[in-house]
Design a protein around this nucleic acid. Structure first.
Length: 924
RNA sequence: GCGGGCGUGGCGGAAUUGGCAGACGCGACGGACUUAGGAUCCGUUGGGUAAAACCAUGAGAGUUCAAGUCUCUCCGCCCGCACCA
């Protein structure tokens, strides 16, 4: 029996480690020695790890951001130990409305406020021990950065990808600015949930639609979560079909082109529907229908976006009095207008085939329009008996003789893509239409009528028209203003600054006006990942050499809320730069991962379910808005919507005073500033230390999963680190004498006892497992593996005889354990790892130490447990040497006492041996 | 409705190609050490039984010697999109 070491024998060992002192010490040293600075030139392979560009808000970072930043930091630190030249930068997405709104709210100048907030973020990042290369810090609101954002605007402009157009835009009356389609979520502004209206205004757009096919196709080349790829595919919304041109009866000079994915159903078109906004509507409407039509148009303009998007609404619409002529059979069909047809999709006009399209069917029944079948599945199927449309199946009906002399070669063809293609070819031959590919994606509205953004570098000259600012005149500096508030007139605050607006035309020298719109924040974040490769270049946005070396980003992490916006825009700009020969890759982010949301247990109160207008929030229990706690998007819910989650409301700070705790109702909701339930890394670092925060964050759940923040869990992580600290200190005294043996020769490995070999096996298995888990983003099991190992090491320690000197090979083994532990710990709990490493006598940072090598021989199992099953049920276990042949396993299994008992009275029919795993005896 | 994901102890979660379900941690319980314990250490901890048997991975079927894992049908939850012609 061995003597158990109790804590009492180790009074000299500190029970708990002094994380405050240790963490401060190492953070200071990392900073002084610029430990995390990426090498400019290196023969090493590179690794570029990046987290979503954050906007520095006044609230600072929360533990939600840490759920993204810490895992990335672990990967980067691990990669450094694996011999990579690592680039892990950080910077500030400082332009845009969150900053501007906060500046307005606090009555502060964003130029002063933003750097303060950024400094606070930076302080917090350091507090958490994140290994950023701060020499590459960037700030998108500084002229040295936005000069190049403007440069890229001009690049797009000169390549025909930026244009100004006056079309009805999505207008948020609260933000007082236009929104791109991506920024309208369910008819509401993505930032403030205000219902979006349509307003015609001249605006700048980027022609992202030109890249739709490539943005879609290249999704197949990148390692991104399926869900994000699916969202981008849906957003791009490619659909194949045909445009078919119909004549208009009585208007021989006009024609109407429809887009349809089902040109094979043209013979069943019984009416046509135009979007109310369609330009031909008023031209073709007959006099007696004009009042009705005008009224309908007006009504549909009044109908809110949200209402129009309600699928279950009745299919309203009115007849224009005009008729279209179906080219395939000369049939005259009535033309209606209805708001279920959208001007922004396809051609804004559809042919309606009620027999095979549900919406058309509903419209036809409501307005007593005929239904004509094109496909039939059985001979007795009739249009009259239909209760709903039949979207697919069946064989085409023979329309020969009913097509006004036009041939009909499709009788009997089955419904399907092949038939559609045949019809398209036929339409093209006849000149009735052509096959086209249509996209849901629309051009990217970049104009903002706001102050805090990069001015659009364009000059409007009465003589020369639109003139791009010459490259050498960049940057167009954002002027100082007295008021940052949006003007309310729909114009940018910049329009009120004469010295900014009035400018000489670069072309003719005459008086001209500057463009006063600024660019939306997504412009800045569409190229920042490139700037990190060469952040201080003042001659160009980046040198090709630096970008060729560092890019693309190897690993990119952030919340899923940017699935379409930022990630689509950045991909688009990357492709444009590729086309311009600036870079040699087409996808900026090779691997993308999304961290899960962080929920906090939050006190609130029940509220009455009714309440007329407050229908919003019924969408789900994730609070207001869907943005994640970490990464760029900093949504801020409006005051009245904040905290409303299905008949439940977060307690306001004052309510926590006035409402007794017995009436509090707790719920798990997203941790966010607007909910007042944010836990900051500062408070955790203060109480338990940054390493504890790191361990807890990694251990609590898989990276992608939503997690619930629990203080008990944090305490568990802290306990573990203290346990590890004590264990290491208990073993440390053996290090000096064991180390010599460890380094001198390998002989000791052969003389280990079985228990010692087992410990060493666990050690090397752990080295392998932790490395693999980090590479595969399984941080929770990496931490678990470390815990398992320290548990075994701890049990081994307890077997050491107190006071007496262990045998030499034991000392060598202990030295190996003592030396390896800080290395394994280093990516996960770097402060503690550095401290232990230093105590081992090292003077340089553990950050650059090589990751320990796995001794495969030591890691290999000597004996394995073979499960013996009878008819699939475990009856016994055998411990055998690894190389036991199958036949011997079978014999051993059959000879086992419990197995024999289970087999009593049965006949063995079959024996399955799975090498290294089990023996299953089938008997009956 | 469509697309993506998920459902395992009291809780968070483990579980290679189908091969011992519940690693690791939290919580709980018992013990040791203590003036003390919300510290530390050592145990126990899915249900069930005296012990077994047996029952357990949302429900139900199927494939297989063997299913948390594969197939089908449901149910529930989360995320995204939603009249897209």
């Amino acid at each position: 029996m061995s003597i158990r070491r109790s804590g009492m024998n180790q009074k000299s060992t500190e029970e708990r480690y002094d994380f405050r002192t240790i963490e401060k010490k190492w953070q200071k040293r990392w900073e002084e020695q610029q430990t995390f600075r990426a090498e400019e030139r290196s023969s090493k392979p590179k690794f570029y790890g990046l987290v979503f560009f954050p906007y520095p808000s006044g609230a600072g970072i929360s533990v939600g951001h840490c759920r993204n930043y810490i895992p990335m930091d672990v990967v980067c630190r691990y990669k450094a130990m694996k011999g990579y030249n690592v680039l892990q930068p950080m910077g500030w997405d400082a332009f845009g409305q969150p900053a501007e709104n906060e500046a307005i709210k606090r009555g502060r100048n964003p130029r002063e406020m933003v750097p303060e907030y950024a400094a606070n973020y930076k302080r917090q990042c350091k507090l958490v021990g994140l290994a950023y290369d701060w020499s590459r810090e960037i700030n998108s609101s500084l002229p040295e950065y936005y000069k190049w954002t403007q440069w890229f605007f001009l690049l797009l402009y000169h390549r025909g990808l930026a244009y100004r157009a006056t079309t009805p835009i999505n207008w948020c009356s609260s933000c007082k600015t236009g929104l791109a389609n991506e920024e309208v979520v369910g008819g509401l502004c993505w930032r403030c949930d205000t219902p979006v209206e349509k307003r015609p205004m001249p605006q700048w757009y980027f022609r992202i639609t030109k890249y739709a096919d490539r943005l879609l196709a290249d999704l197949d080349t990148i390692d991104w979560p399926e869900g994000i790829k699916a969202m981008q595919r849906d957003w791009i919304g490619r659909s194949e079909g045909a445009q078919v041109t119909f004549g208009v009866a009585g208007h021989e000079d006009e024609s109407l082109t429809v887009f349809t994915t089902r040109p094979d159903t043209l013979w069943g078109a019984t009416f046509m529907v135009l979007a109310p906004e369609h330009p031909l509507v008023l031209k073709i409407t007959t006099a007696d229908n004009l009042d009705k039509v005008k009224a309908y148009i007006e009504q549909s303009q009044r109908t809110s976006e949200i209402d129009r998007m309600n699928v279950n609404r009745a299919k309203t619409g009115v007849f224009t009095g005009a008729y279209a002529i179906n080219p395939v059979n000369g049939a005259k069909i009535p033309i209606f207008i209805a708001d279920y047809v959208l001007m922004g999709y396809g051609t804004g006009a559809i042919m309606a085939v009620p027999a095979h399209d549900q919406r058309d069917f509903e419209f036809a029944r409501k307005h007593n329009l005929p239904v004509v079948l094109v496909y039939r599945s059985s001979p007795d199927q009739t249009a009259e008996s239909m209760t709903e449309a039949v979207p697919d199946g069946g064989y085409m009906i023979d329309f020969t003789g009913q097509t006004g002399g036009i041939d009909f070669p499709f009788a009997g063809l089955p419904a399907g893509q092949e038939t559609v293609q045949k019809v398209i070819r036929w339409l093209e031959e006849k000149g009735f239409g052509k096959g086209v590919v249509n996209y849901r994606l629309r051009d990217w509205l970049i104009s903002r009528q706001r102050y805090w953004g990069a001015p659009i570098p364009i000059i409007h000259c009465p003589k020369c028209g639109e003139v791009p600012v010459p490259y050498e005149q960049l940057p167009v500096l954002l002027p100082e203003v007295e008021k940052y508030q949006p003007t309310g007139t729909g114009e940018s605050p910049l329009a009120g600054i004469p010295e900014f607006v009035h400018v000489d035309c670069p072309t003719c020298g005459g008086p001209a006006r500057r463009e006063t719109d600024t660019m939306g924040g997504f412009a800045c974040s569409s190229w920042y990942f490139l700037r990190f490769a060469d952040p201080h270049n003042d001659a160009e946005p980046f040198s090709k050499e630096a970008v060729d070396y560092w890019l693309p980003v190897d690993l990119y992490t952030g919340g899923a809320e940017h699935a379409v916006m930022h990630l689509l825009y950045a991909r688009f700009w990357t492709k444009v730069m590729y086309d311009a020969g600036l870079i040699n890759f087409q996808e900026p982010f090779s691997t993308l991962r999304n961290q899960g949301m962080l929920l906090a247990y939050t006190p609130g109160r029940e509220i009455k379910p009714e309440k007329s207008g407050a229908a919003k929030g019924a969408g789900g229990a994730n609070g207001a808005g869907g943005a994640g706690g970490a990464g760029g998007a900093d949504e801020e819910a409006p005051e009245d919507a904040a905290g409303l989650v299905e008949n439940w409301k977060v307690l306001k700070p004052e309510e926590r005073e006035t409402i007794p705790q017995s009436e509090w109702v707790y719920r798990w909701i997203k941790m966010s500033k607007s909910m007042g339930n944010v836990v900051t890394p500062d408070e955790i670092a203060e109480k338990y230390g940054a390493d504890t925060l790191r361990v807890y964050t990694l251990f609590v759940a898989p990276f992608e999963e939503t997690v619930q923040w629990r203080d008990e869990g944090v305490e568990g992580a802290n306990r573990y680190l203290n346990r590890l600290w004590r264990l290491w200190n208990d073993l440390y005294p053996y290090y000096e004498s064991g180390r010599r043996l460890l380094k001198e020769d390998d002989g000791w490995k052969a003389t280990l006892t079985a228990a010692q070999r087992q410990l060493r096996r666990k050690l090397h298995q752990t080295i392998r497992k932790v490395g693999e888990d980090i590479e595969n983003f399984r941080f929770n099991t990496a931490v678990a593996a470390l815990m398992e190992y320290t548990n075994e090491l701890s049990a081994f320690r307890n077997t050491l005889a107190n006071g007496s000197q262990p045998a030499p090979e034991t000392l060598a083994l202990l030295a190996e354990c003592v030396e390896t532990l800080p290395l394994l710990l280093s990516p996960i709990a770097p402060h503690l790892a550095e401290e232990l490493w230093e105590r081992l006598g090292h003077s340089s940072s553990i950050y650059y130490e090589p990751w320990p090598a796995v001794d495969e021989a030591a890691a290999a199992e000597e004996a394995i447990t073979i499960v013996v099953q009878v008819n699939g049920k475990v009856r016994s276990r055998l411990t055998v040497p690894v190389d036991t042949p199958d036949s011997a396993l079978e014999q051993l299994a059959l000879g086992d006492k419990t197995v024999a008992a289970a087999l009593a009275g049965k006949k063995v029919r079959r024996v399955i041996v799975v090498p290294g795993k089990l023996v299953n005896i089938v008997a009956g």
